[in-house]
């Protein structure tokens, strides 16, 4: 019996050594360990053994059995691993081929820049105000201290709808509408579409966009104007940006200023973008004119405020190095897809 067991063990080992796949392994298992298998047959024949031999042979048979079971398992995992390896090799793909992209649309570059500005403003406690494109002359001009026949009207070639109705030439009328409705403290920005009768070329469009800002409260100073806009510009153009305020004139602010930022291309050295000046003119601003406050029913002896306004296209053109204003309104997909 003992020899028989040894023999089975050797034969099984031999067979296992040659087993190439899971099927072969299964056959071996059935051949030796199955219900009708050789080892099972040996165990069935144990009854014929003497009581002394029985435990010895029994132990040996179990030993052989567990040995074979272990060998088969091991072999099985070897084969599985090998099969999986082969499978993986067959599954090799060219990972440099392009992925299957979802076609996600893009926001217009003007929206992207505007969103950035809105986020900065909201972080500083501003709300967003809106107003009509078709506007009363009163809001667009008169309430802003630009009476009829004022020379400042010449620089804003106006589209008229009726004698006293215009397409707004600036977003400043929103200031007036806000101040009429809301009492201080006021902190708003007002983005919007504006119209001027300029023929279309690379730098002119009869339709473009501005963003207006307005702060009114007790004790607002010109120093606040400077500090707020400096912080704004540093957020928008980076903390290295230097800001310069130059005296200027707007009928609805007094004192008035133009804000230049250090050129974001050359950093102030002078280059093509800043025309060698090192500065880029970015926005107009000033302390709200006392007449404008009074026109809106706000007492200029108690309250003061500042306002600023800038062109959205100008900012986007600088940001993305766009040299032709017309691209914004052509909406060529090859342009839109770049942002």
């Amino acid at each position: 019996m003992k020899e028989k067991l040894e023999q089975i063990k050797n034969k099984a080992e031999e067979a296992l050594a040659h087993a190439a796949d899971i099927d072969a392994l299964e056959k071996i298992r059935i051949t030796y360990l199955g219900k009708k298998g050789e080892l099972t047959a040996v165990l069935k024949g144990m009854g014929a053994l003497s009581p002394e031999e029985r435990p010895v042979i029994g132990a040996l048979a179990n030993e052989v059995r567990s040995f074979l079971e272990k060998e088969i398992d091991e072999k099985k995992s070897q084969i599985t691993a090998k099969l999986q390896n082969e499978q993986l090799k067959r599954e090799v793909i060219d990972v440099t081929m392009p992925g299957s992209k979802q076609d996600i649309g893009r926001l217009h570059p003007l929206t992207k820049v505007l969103n950035e500005i809105k986020d900065i403003a909201i972080g500083m406690g501003f709300s967003i105000a809106e107003g009509p494109d078709v506007e009363y002359d009163y809001y667009n001009f008169e309430a802003l201290n630009i009476p009829k026949n004022h020379p400042a009207r010449d620089t804003q070639d106006t589209f008229y709808i009726e004698d006293n109705i215009v397409l707004r030439t600036q977003t400043s009328p929103i200031q007036v509408r806000v101040m009429e409705k809301q009492k201080p403290p006021i902190r708003v920005i007002a983005p919007g579409r504006v119209y001027r009768s300029d023929a279309v070329d690379a730098t002119h469009s009869p339709v473009f966009h501005q963003i207006e800002g307005l702060v009114v409260d007790k004790g607002i100073t010109m120093a606040d104007l400077k500090g707020t806009l400096e912080a704004f510009m540093k957020r928008l153009y980076g903390s290295d940006t230097r800001v310069r305020f130059r005296p200027h004139h707007f009928p609805f602010t007094e004192p008035s200023a133009e804000l230049d930022i250090s050129c974001f291309v050359c950093g102030g050295e002078g280059c093509r973008v800043c025309k060698g000046e090192g500065w880029i003119e970015l926005l107009g601003c000033g302390m709200v004119h006392p007449k404008v406050l009074a026109n809106c029913g706000i007492d200029p002896e108690v309250y003061s405020g500042f306002a600023f306004g800038c062109g959205l296209e100008r900012i986007a053109m600088g940001r993305y190095d766009i040299d032709d204003l017309r691209l914004f309104f052509e909406n060529d997909l090859r342009f839109l897809k770049q942002f």
């Binding site: 909201i122 406690g125 501003f126 403290p185 902190r187 010109m222 400077k226 008035s256």
Partner: peptide, 29 residues
Amino acid sequence: ADVAEEIARFYGYDNIPSTLLSGEATVGG
């Protein structure tokens, strides 16, 4: 305010300090 501008121009806009808004906070949004 016009007189203030004349003074500010020659004092120098550059020399006016930069301060952040104080006063009643607004929520914004």
